[in-house]
Design a protein around this nucleic acid. Structure first.
Lengths: 215, 215
DNA sequence: TGCGAACCGTACCGTACGGTACTGAAGGAG
DNA sequence: CTCCTTCAGTACCGTACGGTACGGTTCGCA
């Protein structure tokens, strides 16, 4: 192990060859198209044109494959840092609206919904290993972006809150409400997606009414 | 069919004998304990001391059993009507806090979490039939209670909102935020349950700050 | 050219599940 | 007592999946 072979890696330090990344890509496609039931080892091998033996060699077992899929997908989503420019009221609102719209777009994405369904289905069994992983890689990441934005707003005197976590929770709730759950339950997201822009603006307005520093 | 036998029914017009209700009860218990994977026809038959043949006679097939489980559980939860008493600011807040706490308790319940996981896992496949059912029986029901409460508040001049659905969405989001998803993913609810009271109060305060009629 | 590693394709095995068929017992009606 | 319905218990079947083993092929390398 850890030999001199210069294996081209797929992600950032993910330890995966690009061949393995391509396999995970196909696995994700299968999962999105047909749900967990369609994600069989034979199906992945056929779709990715690799052998089952290689799958087990690379990922250990089926659970290892699922974990690798989550980690792989998360490695593709890079949270863009907050530009440390000077914030005024308008630019803060614009940043918040952009964040809210991105959040809705991410949550409504095919792959995100499929992976969340997968982890939720696996949650009761096996100590919710996948759930932890998804939460760590997904929510924490986007939470950091929001936290930085909120902190910048407070430093600029535009936001007033005691607990950043609580403020973020309020923002998240106002933006997402129960839409995420409804999409997870099967509500067609295409009909809802058109309202994302307006919804994000209204939610941010409400958030600013609660935590805006004017008072 | 439709004979004169006076079959004792289990639910309110559910068309189920109490024997069948007892079977569904055992099935729900199996689902809560072990997740969908543990919910096998043989397991249900063994746990409920009935034959597989009876299961198929009563519920058709496995999907029919799942649908019956959701309908059965929903039939047990009766939404209590809003007392049409005169509301003042304090009693409205108390009602909202009670509603918020009930909402959190329901969502954190074992059976609710298990059924939501089941429906979500089944969502990608089969046109999300269970998801629709769960949404219809669950969300709509509790949404009606909230709607009535909000409408009463508006009639009393204590709340100001244009779209009741939007106001309810804000209340729901402020109360629940991403806790439901986290519990579905496997976060231990027992640790979170202790904060439900405080959380409900803070959420209602924020909601009143947004939609309170004082302004 | 020969060697070895990686790997694809496939065949194979054990198991577990959904669904069906059969047997025998309990109980009610005539 | 006898017939008939219902249902528990069990055995059974087909299928599909996870995981493993094997033969054949490609490719890098000395």
């Amino acid at each position: 192990m850890r030999g001199v072979e210069a294996t081209k890696e797929a992600g950032a330090g993910s330890g995966l060859t690009e061949r393995q990344g391509a396999v995970l890509e196909q696995a994700l496609r299968l999962l999105v198209d047909g749900g967990e039931k369609a994600l069989t080892t034979a199906g992945v091998a056929r779709a990715a044109s690799c052998s089952k033996e290689s799958l087990y060699k690379w990922f250990g077992d089926r659970d290892g494959l699922l974990s690798a899929m989550i980690a792989f997908q998360a490695s593709k989503v890079r949270t863009l840092g907050v530009s440390a420019e000077a914030l005024d009221e308008a630019s803060l609102r614009a940043h918040l609206v952009a964040f809210a719209k991105d959040l809705l777009d991410v949550l409504a994405g095919d792959v995100s919904l499929a992976l969340n369904r997968l982890a939720i289905g696996q949650a009761s069994r096996e100590g919710s290993k996948l759930g932890r992983l998804l939460e760590e890689r997904g929510r924490r990441q986007i939470g950091r972006r929001a936290g930085a934005l909120l902190e910048a707003g407070r430093k600029a005197g535009l936001l007033a809150f005691g607990d950043a976590e609580e403020a973020y929770g309020a923002l998240y709730g106002l933006v997402v409400s129960d839409w995420h759950l409804r999409m997870l339950l099967g509500d067609d997201p295409s009909g809802l997606k058109k309202n994302f822009g307006r919804r994000a603006e209204r939610a941010v307005d409400a958030f600013l009414a609660l935590y805006g520093g004017k008072a």
